[in-house]
Amino acid sequence: MADYDFGLFSCLVADDSAYMRTLMSASLRAIGVGNVKTVDDGSAGIDFLQLVQSDPMKAGMQNVDIIFSNWQMHPVDGMMLLRWVRRHKESPNRFIPFVMVTGYADKEKVREARAMGATEMLAKPFSVVNLGQRLLQVVNRPRKFVHTSKYFGPDRRRNQREIPPGKCRRKIDERNVEVVHV
């Protein structure tokens, strides 16, 4: 397997713990990510994404390739940042891979983040290997995006298994499906 070179990657890390910010950015840089910026909450994350769009020189980044965001932050948490990225009309890129970093391990919380459009989850405590795995997932296994009346985000059906019959299932037939290449 060929080794990737992440030198051209630009990542944004959002965490309200200075220690975790430093840890995450130092680890990403050591893995080879060329450009990492950190912010201390979701609001600062939104400001930064807007700055990248309006003044990339000042932001020090041409674009953001991946967002790694802690969930629980104040005043604007990771879910609100994710919601803005996926749904707000001023979001510079609604398809951006978003890795939600969280101490919440229960299935309900994971479902909640996925329903908002998180690309991957990274549970705390994590190791460098876990971080690297999420990075590889994003690069090696990108998912198409789905837009329905109730959801916009990465396709949650990572494994295309046979879907059992049921009235709540997404209806897939040629009449109501449109495929857009972006």
Partner: peptide, 18 residues
């Protein structure tokens, strides 16, 4: 949306990394 709209996104990150 017509029901379901899929966006198939070109894997720019893989191109960048490789």
């Amino acid at each position: 949306v017509p029901g379901v709209r899929f966006y198939v996104i070109r894997n720019i990150l893989k191109d960048k990394a490789s």
